[in-house]
Simulated assay, not measured.
Amino acid sequence: MLNKDCHHNCNQGNCPFAQDSNNANRYVCLKCGVEREINRYPSGFGSIVMLLLSLFIASQLLINWEKQDNQPQSEPAISSLR
């Protein structure tokens, strides 16, 4: 991970990281140039997970709605008018 040839204090975890102005997830050590990525997965990964989760929830709601529609409905009680 860290450059073994680095002659700075970076190998003890003291890297002064700076954020890349073009990529908010990328940080670079100012002393040795070691790169770190905050989000290891591309942004599309989270979108796919959210899509699958929303499809699962929608299917569960649809199944429950269909079960309620298929249940026999009780007839209302007829009250006698006297």
Rank of each mutant, 00 (worst) to 15 (best):
R36G: 02
Q60T: 08
Q60V: 11
L55R: 04
Y27T: 00
E35K: 02
G46F: 10
S21P: 09
N11L: 14
C6Y: 03
Q68A: 14
F45Q: 07
Q68F: 14
F17I: 00
N11Y: 04
L53C: 15
Q60I: 11
E35R: 00
C15H: 02
L62A: 14
V34G: 00
L55Y: 04
L52S: 07
C10H: 02
I57N: 06
N22Y: 06
G46D: 02
V49N: 09
S47Q: 15
N22H: 08
K4T: 08
M50P: 00
Y27V: 03
S59K: 06
G13P: 04
Q12N: 11
A58F: 12
Q68S: 12
E37S: 02
D20A: 12
A24N: 08
N22A: 13
I48S: 10
G33M: 01
V28I: 10
N64F: 11
F17V: 00
E35Q: 04
M50R: 12
N23W: 05
I63L: 10
G46N: 06
L51S: 07
V34C: 01
L61A: 03
G46L: 06
D69Y: 13
V34F: 05
R36E: 09
V34A: 10
I38P: 01
N64D: 11
K4D: 10
Q19K: 11
A18D: 09
F56T: 15
I57C: 15
S43I: 14
A24M: 13
P16F: 11
S21Y: 08
E35F: 00
M50E: 12
A58I: 07
G13C: 13
L61D: 01
A58T: 12
K67C: 03
R36M: 07
Y27P: 00
H7F: 09
R26A: 06
Y27R: 06
L51Q: 07
G13E: 08
V34N: 08
F56I: 15
N25M: 14
L51A: 05
I48W: 10
N39Q: 07
I48G: 05
S54G: 05
N9R: 05
N64W: 04
S21D: 12
E66K: 00
K31R: 09
L53G: 10
K67M: 01
M50H: 02
G44T: 10
I38C: 04
A18Y: 06
G13K: 09
E37C: 01
F56R: 03
N9F: 09
F56Q: 09
K4Q: 12
Q12H: 07
D69M: 15
D69L: 15
P16G: 05
I48E: 11
N14Y: 12
G13T: 09
L61W: 07
Y27C: 03
F17A: 00
Q68L: 13
G33V: 01
P42A: 11
K31F: 15
G13W: 10
N64T: 14
N39A: 10
R36D: 04
H7A: 12
V34R: 01
R26F: 03
G44H: 10
E66D: 07
V34K: 08
R36P: 05
D20V: 01
C29A: 02
D69F: 14
K67A: 10
R40L: 14
C6E: 13
E37K: 04
R36A: 07
Q68N: 09
A58V: 03
